[in-house]
Nucleic acid binder design. Structure first.
Lengths: 183, 183
DNA sequence: CCTCTGATGCAGTGATCGGTGCGTTAACAG
DNA sequence: CTGTTAACGCACCGATCACTGCATCAGAGG
């Protein structure tokens, strides 16, 4: 109890319930905002009792934040093309491709809507990936732009377009973003 | 926007109810996401019967979109400093100042969370303002950047920082954004 | 001033949400 | 294999949400 801080049981059933609930959330969010996203509805879709959802995730905001975090973690591999420009173009293109999925967009929107924590849940991993790319350029001996500047120039337009305007995010456009940053 | 272009009865009471409900939404949204934003709660805060809210605005998404649209329309005056750089710096600074208010941020987040329409409701007027600035530079004889490029370089980072990261948006930073665009 | 009509208030209903107490199941340790 | 205990399912409750006829009130026009 006091030795191991994480007493969660990573065993079969808990993991299965967790995965099922996560999938249910993604499905319901993807089915449009007309469908109201509530704990009982999520539980029913997941084939799980509502009580379980209430107990494991106290609020809808926490649940959405967790789903978003796990969804946006590790899906995009940070490439190593040999050059900073190549890395950034490839990575930005991957992020744009991920945003091309309407379901992903809906998840981001819903998560942001639950509160300030939701935003960072959608961007934390992307920041880490970007930082890794810049750090790698640093080890190459180059002098990459700062993390904040790169985030403003790349993640800013990417998220803005995807979430607010709904404009398409094609690779040619993302290449232009990288150009504007490295120019 | 697309609700009812010709309000059959723009008389005193309807306008009063409308303003009261709008104010109630802004207040409740500002009071944090812990407070659940529902039609009856909004009606109670506005001192209006829930039936009225249900009838005038069919859904919470429509109501939030209307509130956001009217809130983000006309609050920021497009300045004329004589130069494109001056106009953009002043305008970006004003937008950043507007985002410094947590209540405004909360409204944006809540509106975005209701669906795809919510995003454009928060950005439509800003796009129009930016377009006006670029158009003015055009009449001056200059060759301003395209609207999309300017939106990516300015609105992108502004909205991204405000909504997702929560980082401060000070005038020095916005000046850097304009620099990166006009460089 | 009077009528007319649309907007609002009122009372009430079915459905569902959020939450609790308790018994049962199954993952992990020995 | 057996015991322990976290995690889950079940039954149930109060609160309130979304919504609907009907009566009333207040602008707008004659």
């Amino acid at each position: 109890m006091s030795t191991t801080p994480s007493h969660t049981r990573p065993g079969g059933r808990s993991a299965r319930v967790r995965a099922s609930v996560h999938r249910a959330v993604e499905e319901l969010v993807a089915e449009g905002p007309s469908e109201d996203l509530t704990m009982p509805v999520i539980a029913a879709r997941a084939g799980v009792h509502p009580t379980t959802v209430y107990r494991r995730w106290g609020s809808l905001a926490d649940l959405l934040a967790e789903v978003a975090t796990s969804r946006f973690s590790g899906d995009i591999v940070v490439p190593d093309t040999g050059t900073l420009r190549g890395d950034l173009e490839r990575w930005a293109s991957d992020v744009a491709t991920d945003f091309a999925d309407p379901d992903v967009l809906a998840l981001v929107r819903a998560t942001v809507g639950t509160g300030p924590r939701g935003g960072s849940a959608c961007t934390a991993d992307r920041h880490a990936q970007l930082e890794a790319i810049l750090e790698r350029e640093h080890t190459r001996g180059g002098s990459p732009p700062g993390l904040e500047q790169a985030a403003d120039a790349l993640l800013g337009p990417l998220y803005y377009r995807a979430v607010f305007t709904g404009l398409p995010t094609d690779p040619i456009w993302t290449s232009g973003l990288v150009d504007a940053l490295l120019r």
